[in-house]
Design a binder for these strands. Structure first.
Length: 576
DNA sequence: ATTAGGG
DNA sequence: CCCTAAT
């Protein structure tokens, strides 16, 4: 097995750090960014089967919560303290004497940092400290060996069938008391044995990536974009060779060293694979997804470098309150229906490595740190999140789903926080309850209108520098080749049509947005105006800088003509 | 979704 | 690169 751990640079000469930020969920996919169909989709049925299968009544206990009901804890949990007044449950629930759901058990979320749902008797309303108490009680059951990862964002409509938006973190491995990822630092080593993950070298492929500005080079159009890219890469490989070595050495000597110490760790942990390599992406991604499709799936395929075995997903912490007189069968049914409801709205998979969400689907596993050598398996975690595609429209829906991931991270930080400040709950997202119409049959989400209000910013969980850094897209200096392509495009299109510039010259460079190009042009103009001594980074040929100034001047004069039309080629020629 | 400009 | 305001 050969692992690419040595620093290497693609033909375009720069290294891509491991933690390139994925597009935030908020960010819309760029229109020119093609999606690979079915990529991050999971079959809800599979998930349901999976989760349902792994649903375990790990600790079961009767808690005298008053009346004739008993409470069952479905999973271990570490108690999260939080101020009662911030407990969303305290918000008055739409319950009244004539509430149609009164006669039915209901299930709701207590608003803890993560998922926790309770099925209570009718007429029983948990409020503030009450919930706090019960939670405390449960936590003792779970012991200290487990930190349950949970986050269950619900979007519920008052009084009617609503949407349940689960954000479930699944555990990897068979150690049922160990959670990995989001909240889970409880048992750092617990999952190791249960996650098989190793890499092998693929002889057939090399993983250098190539930025390939299209410039005027026609690319053979084949249906599959990826294929096209592969061809493009190979095509360029030859062209790029001549300057590969010098580029590489340049970056070794200058760029790597010039990186802030803080960031340099990236380099150490990155694999050699360049994230610009399109070839790698489909493979690893689909592998990860598919491996999660079946419970206890084992992957023994030799065709992939990384093999993951995910024993099962785990449902979030789940509290159930049910009358003692209820039958075991009804309890089972209730749990099943609850899970079904949770999963009903469609899910997608989230990946966490060392407590940090990996949002960028285009990152390779190696870049993410998922490799045999540099594995972070201790903190490798998958979670189920509300599927954005399937996400229903109701008001808070988008809000909740957008922040579901953040909550996980926040939970994690809190779990790690020794000071253990009262964990501010996420008032809105974790709050909700499920009711049943006819005696533990269909679960009907119910929610108060207060839930629909946007969640106030949580100051206690201000994003840390690290988090912000992780969010930030990685810096990718423009290569001379790219600059050349950019200059040429601007010469033709002007400085106000960055979208066109993007399509024209950088369509295949997915990491270059038109904003990036615009910004680069801005800096290019600036660079061209300052003395060579003040310039930093890879030197841009003076010839190009001259063209930059020339084009900039030209288009400054011809703003009116910039509408839609290119200047006569003669002028362009003259421009160049 | 794009553009423009400040940070 | 990020973030925003304005289109």
């Amino acid at each position: 097995m050969v692992s690419h751990k040595v620093l290497e640079f693609g033909d375009d000469g720069y290294k891509l750090p491991a933690q390139a930020r994925a597009p935030r969920s908020v960010r819309k996919k760029r229109i020119y960014e093609k999606k690979i169909p079915g990529d991050d989709k999971m079959c809800a049925i599979d998930l349901l089967a999976t989760v349902a299968g792994s649903l375990l009544l790990e600790s079961e206990s009767s808690v005298n919560a008053g009346g004739d009901k008993c409470v069952v804890v479905v999973q271990n949990t570490v108690k999260k303290e939080f101020p009662a007044e911030e407990n969303p449950v305290k918000v008055a629930l739409p319950y009244s004497e004539d509430n149609p759901y009164q006669r039915s058990p209901r299930l709701f979320d207590n608003g803890q940092c993560g998922f926790s749902s309770v099925i209570t008797n009718p007429n029983h309303l948990l409020v503030g400290d009450k919930v706090e108490k019960e939670v405390q009680g449960f936590s003792s059951l779970g012991g200290s060996d487990s930190c349950e990862v949970r986050n269950f964002s619900k979007n519920l409509n008052p009084g009617v069938n609503g949407d349940v938006k689960p954000d479930i973190v699944a555990s990897i491995g068979s150690n049922s008391s160990t959670e990995v990822g989001a909240c889970g630092n409880g048992s750092p080593n617990g999952s190791r044995d249960d996650v098989n993950l190793f890499s092998r070298n693929d002889d057939d492929e090399n993983f250098s990536g190539y930025i390939r500005p299209r410039m005027n080079r026609p690319v053979p159009r084949i249906g599959d974009r990826r294929i096209r890219k592969i061809l493009a890469s190979r095509h360029w490989k030859g062209d790029a060779k001549p300057w590969y070595c010098s580029k590489r050495s340049y970056y070794l000597h200058h760029h790597q060293r010039s990186y802030p110490i803080k960031k340099r760790k990236y380099f150490d942990s990155i694999s050699d694979s360049n994230s610009d390599d399109y070839r790698l992406q489909g493979k690893t991604r689909s592998r990860t997804i598919s491996s999660m499709k079946s419970r206890n799936a084992s992957f023994v395929s030799r065709d992939h470098r990384v093999r993951l075995r995910i024993k099962s997903f785990r449902v979030p912490e789940l509290f159930i309150e049910i009358p003692e007189t209820a039958t075991v069968g009804s309890l089972k049914r209730m749990v099943m229906e609850a899970v079904t409801t949770i999963l009903g709205d469609g899910l997608r998979v989230g990946l966490m490595v060392q407590g940090k969400k990996v949002r960028d689907d285009s990152k390779t596993l190696l870049q993410t740190g998922i490799s045999e050598e540099n594995n972070h398996l201790d903190s490798l975690g998958f979670c189920l999140e509300p599927s954005l595609e399937t996400t229903p429209q109701p008001l808070s829906s988008s809000y909740l789903s957008e922040h579901a991931c953040d909550d996980l991270t926040l939970c994690h930080d809190n779990a790690l926080d020794s000071s253990h400040q009262p964990a501010a709950p996420s008032p809105a997202d974790s709050f909700g309850k499920l009711g049943t119409t006819d005696h533990s049959r269909a679960l009907i989400p119910v929610v108060s209108a207060a839930m629909l209000a946007p969640r106030p910013p949580n100051r206690k969980f201000k994003r840390t520098e690290q988090q912000l850094a992780a969010q930030r897209r990685i810096r990718r200096p423009f290569s001379v080749t790219e600059v050349e392509a950019l200059v040429q495009a601007v010469e033709h299109l002007g400085t106000g049509r960055w979208r066109d510039v993007k399509v024209r010259a950088f369509e295949d460079a997915d990491h270059r947005t038109y904003v990036d190009l615009k910004d680069k042009w801005k800096t290019l103009v600036h660079t061209a105006r300052i003395s060579p001594q003040q310039r930093r980074g890879e030197p841009v040929p003076q010839e190009l800088l001259d063209r930059v100034l020339k084009a900039h001047a030209y288009w400054s004069q011809h703003l009116m003509h910039q509408l839609q039309t290119e200047p006569p080629s003669s002028q362009v020629e003259a421009l160049i």
